[in-house]
Design a protein around this nucleic acid. Structure first.
Length: 708
DNA sequence: CTAGGGTTAG
């Protein structure tokens, strides 16, 4: 009797509710995924923090599962669902298997030397011009029909490419009716079609098989499903998986891992884990490929607990990770932001005797670069050279990007020179972008411009990130005429400015306050994001009401990607302060806080309140300080509770944007005559006691700087 | 690509 997928999934969820799960359950990671899965995009609606709801609840996720897989309860309902109370499942009862323990065996096809005749025939067909239909058909008629057998047909089907030829040959065999059609003929043809991403034709063939009573086996289904996946037709993939159960066929481990990957790519972590655990509960021992699928999924979700779950499961089942599994898990560790665990996993891999390949090293170098671990990155680089570990183009570029991330100027220049001299790893737009990034952050205008000219001369593709690096470099050096020139070349060449580039221009607008240059930069910004320029004009007009500002602010920020929202807000505050529009600056800080751009600005414990301005621009930090002092003054005056210690943190200025923040902050503290003093053992930390604060309030009239 | 599944860049 057929087991439907619907019932299988249903049972799985009942299991999780009614029985102890016997196998390690990453329920924590589920929850974490639900939080992480609400990745913000430019489309993310902007909601004030107070009524910020969870983007995706568990029931929402389960609802989608119900809609996709529970909707089709078949006529032959398994007994468990026909019982009056189907919500109870006896945990000790043997579980209904949901996948076959045995991988489908292939029929052995022996390729004998007597097949030379057909090899030559296939060769001739392959030499035919694809666009010349008649030539191909004429060639087909020359087939040596006397010795036509299934083995010969298979040989030809396997040798033909591209897919059009395989497909034509299958149809021809079928139409000639010389030999009974077999499953394997379809399977081989489908594989060829999958290379050409021809899902439509594959589906047509599948329906044909059903019509003609040709058995579809696990190889057929896994090919269909993986083709749908390759074509991003995930609904089709799920459809054929369900169909398989309905047809009474149990998936084997290959088909099962394919469908797990389908759900994983849809971000349906719950479903993947449920299917996986259900399979595990019926005695299935997953292989490394399945673990690789799970590892990638948890990496995409940034779910460290999930990755650890994969490692634990492998260990407890005695499955030794292979090279691909390690590569996937290392990549996943990077995405989950765990450089330390990535490092130990990498060492574990090398210790276990598996030699890293290009992908391994690319993943690890990238992680070290992003974590700014220059020591580890350099050490690994040295080991790569000593051990003669393989290098490829992507690894070269990743090393360059790493140099940009950790600030290794000379190493990058050597590497770049090596690439230019190499035969197969010539620098491309990625390599040039990395170099622009380095010169940009070094502030080396001359070298950056020289590189840009070289790119133009060599016809290297220009991209928006390179543009941003150049603009940042020229902006910091206040080379505004060159900046405008470079910007226009990029845009004229079809590069579309993105939010980061706009943020970069916006910060230069704030830096060029009061000079003629500001108009020039605004001109660039006008071309990139006219709404942003209109907003600057709006807030600069003192007549504009707060309500109008709020509305436009919301619209601007909703249209911007999440990563730039705080920088945008910082720059806008700076612009206002430069124009002496203090009230507006406070309004913008208020709005930024309201929409959650400054979640860590205030940290309170019973003993200590801390104002952390480390991610704020100078203007925003000063505005936040004023706001805080006014609030504290109010609290003192109202005689409300205060902690013993008050802290303000600006950081050390090690971050490239935070230069001078602590100096400006200290000077503003003096201007306000605020009672904070620089901490002796912590740079960038300002301290005041409750007593300091109270006596300061009593001897001052702080209302004079309270802007709102 | 010798009938099916997994891994590399802001």
């Amino acid at each position: 009797m057929a087991t439907s997928l619907s019932s299988v999934i249903h049972i799985t969820f009942l299991d999780t509710k009614t029985t102890q799960r016997r196998f390690i359950t990453p329920s924590k990671s589920h929850r974490k995924f639900l939080v992480n899965s609400s990745k913000s995009t430019p489309d993310t609606p902007l909601t004030p923090i107070s009524d910020n709801k969870k983007n995706s609840s568990l029931s929402d996720q389960l609802a989608s599962l119900a809609n996709t897989t529970l909707s089709t309860v078949p006529e032959d309902q398994p007994e468990i669902l026909s019982k009056p109370n189907p919500t109870w499942v006896n945990p000790t009862k043997a579980k209904r298997p949901m996948l076959s323990q045995q991988k489908q065996k292939r029929s052995s096809v022996s390729y004998n030397p007597q097949l030379r005749e057909f090899q030559q025939f296939a060769q001739r067909l392959n030499n035919c011009d694809l666009s010349n239909e008649e030539e191909f058909m004429a060639c087909l008629e020359e087939i040596p029909t006397t010795s036509l057998s299934r083995v010969n047909v298979l040989l030809v089907l396997n040798s033909l490419r591209p897919w059009q030829k395989t497909y034509k040959f299958l149809n021809w065999i079928k139409s000639k009716d010389l030999i009974p059609m077999e499953t394997i003929f379809y399977n081989v043809t489908m594989k060829s079609l999958r290379f050409g991403r021809q899902f439509g034709i594959i589906e047509e063939l599948a329906l044909q098989m059903i019509d003609n009573g040709i058995e579809m086996d696990n190889i057929t289904y896994s090919t269909i499903i993986s083709c749908a996946k390759k074509c991003n037709l995930f609904d089709k993939a799920v459809h054929w998986f369900e169909k398989m159960y309905k047809m009474g066929l149990m998936p084997d481990e290959v088909t099962f891992s394919v469908i797990l990957d389908v759900y994983a790519r849809l971000g349906k972590v719950e479903e993947v884990v449920s299917l996986f655990e259900r399979g595990r509960a019926t005695g299935w021992k997953p292989d490394p490929i399945t673990f690789s699928v799970l590892g990638k999924m948890f990496g995409e979700a940034g779910d460290y607990d999930g990755i650890r779950y994969v490692l634990q499961e492998m260990k407890s089942l005695g499955v030794q990770p292979n090279l691909v599994v390690y590569n996937t898990l290392l990549e996943a560790m990077g995405k989950a932001g765990k450089p330390g665990f990535a490092r130990s996993l990498f060492e574990e891999m090398v210790d276990s005797g598996i030699a890293p390949n290009e992908k391994t090293l690319t993943a690890v170098i990238k992680i070290y670069g992003k974590a700014r671990w220059s020591k580890d990155a350099l050490e690994l680089w040295k080991r790569m050279k000593e051990n003669g570990w393989p290098m490829d183009f992507m690894l070269y570029n990743t090393l360059l990007s790493m140099c940009a991330d950790v600030g290794l100027l000379e190493e990058a220049e050597t590497l770049f020179k090596d690439m230019k001299q190499s035969e197969y790893c010539k620098p491309d737009s990625w390599s040039y972008t990395a170099m622009l990034n380095i010169y940009g952050s070094e502030g080396d205008v001359v070298k950056a411009i020289k590189l840009f000219e070289e790119m133009c001369k060599l016809g290297i593709e220009l991209n928006v990130m390179g543009c941003t690096c150049l603009i940042q470099c020229l902006g910091k050096a206040m080379e505004i005429n060159d900046l405008v020139k470079v910007f226009n070349i990029y845009v004229d060449r079809g590069v579309k400015p993105d939010d980061r580039l706009c943020g970069c221009l916006l910060s230069i607008v704030s830096l060029s306050q009061g000079s003629k240059d500001q108009e020039k930069v605004l001109g660039c910004l006008q071309r990139a994001n006219p709404k942003l320029v209109a907003f600057i004009q709006l807030i600069a007009d003192e007549e504009t009401s707060f309500e109008t500002v709020k509305e436009e602010f919301k619209s601007i920020m909703s249209n911007a990607v999440v990563e730039v929202r705080r920088p945008f807000c910082n720059c806008l505050i700076d612009i206002c302060r430069n124009k002496d529009l203090l009230k507006r600056a406070h309004e913008l800080l208020y709005l930024g806080t309201l929409y959650g751009f400054y979640p860590t600005l205030h940290n309170k414990t019973q003993y200590e309140w801390c104002l952390d301005v480390r991610t704020l621009s100078v203007g925003a930090a000063l505005t936040a300080l004023e706001e805080w002092m006014a609030t504290l003054a109010k609290i003192v005056k109202r005689d409300e509770a205060l902690p013993d210690l008050l802290l303000a943190q600006t950081g050390t200025g090690a971050h490239k944007f935070a230069h001078g923040l602590n100096i400006s902050f200290a000077s503003h503290l003096r201007k306000l005559a605020a009672p904070f003093r620089q901490s002796e053992d912590k740079v960038g930390c300002f301290i005041a006691t409750k007593e300091d604060l109270v006596s300061w309030v009593e001897s001052n009239s702080p209302s004079e700087f309270v802007a709102t």
